[in-house]
Design a protein around this nucleic acid. Structure first.
Length: 184
DNA sequence: CGCCGGTCGTAAA
DNA sequence: TTTACGACCGGCG
């Protein structure tokens, strides 16, 4: 899959950008897919335009589900097949807008196989900052491509707390659907 | 168990 | 530039 990255801060992210978005079904609910001229740049679960706007300050938003339908279908299918382990090719690139650190973390998430989970500490080690566990948590939580950048596959060491931007129940449902034993 | 300190990248002030 | 705050972790009681 092709991945395009842009290093920015949250505040500057949406400036001068036009995003075309639409709502589409996937296995566990509705997904909001937003496209820039380069590819998919934002995915939200069971949410609406206000969530999109909040994440892209200053961006020009255009709703057109006809345009987002094809990529949305591909993304949903890819996840269902065990993304990214048995990923089918997507006709659009994944576009990551974030700080250098966040992009590093998100790219690490793309390596986690479907059906597996890793801890925040694991990611911290992988990016070479073993003590920055908490900073990793923040970065994971700011993931802009829900489901596709599999932030739901990151859990805490003790396994007793489960946090997720779209609600703990959705995280559990995703892990269950992926066949993670502890959530079956 | 629950509490506390350490750590480090961010957004906001 | 300063401050406050996390989708955390490990140690200690």
């Amino acid at each position: 899959m092709k991945v395009i990255t842009h290093t920015t801060t949250r505040a500057a992210r949406g400036k001068g950008l036009t995003l075309v978005w639409g709502l589409h079904d996937f296995a566990l609910g509705k997904m909001l897919v937003a496209l820039s001229s380069e590819g998919v740049c934002w995915i939200g679960i069971n949410c609406g335009e206000k969530d999109l706007a909040k994440n892209w300050p200053g961006a020009n938003l255009i709703e057109d589900a006809k345009i987002t339908a094809k990529p949305a279908r591909e993304l949903a299918a890819a996840w269902k097949k065990g993304w990214p382990q048995r990923a089918g090719d997507l006709s659009v690139p994944l576009v990551l807008y974030g700080t250098a650190f966040q992009i590093k973390v998100w790219k690490e998430l793309l390596k986690i196989k479907s059906g597996a989970v890793v801890t925040y500490a694991d990611i911290a080690r992988k990016v070479g900052l073993p003590a920055a566990v908490r900073a990793v948590g923040s970065a994971v939580g700011k993931n802009t491509l829900s489901i596709i950048v599999p932030c739901h596959r990151v859990v805490n060491t003790s396994g007793n707390k489960i946090s997720y931007g779209w609600g703990p129940a959705m995280k559990k449902a995703l892990l269950k659907a992926e066949g993670v034993p502890a959530y079956a």
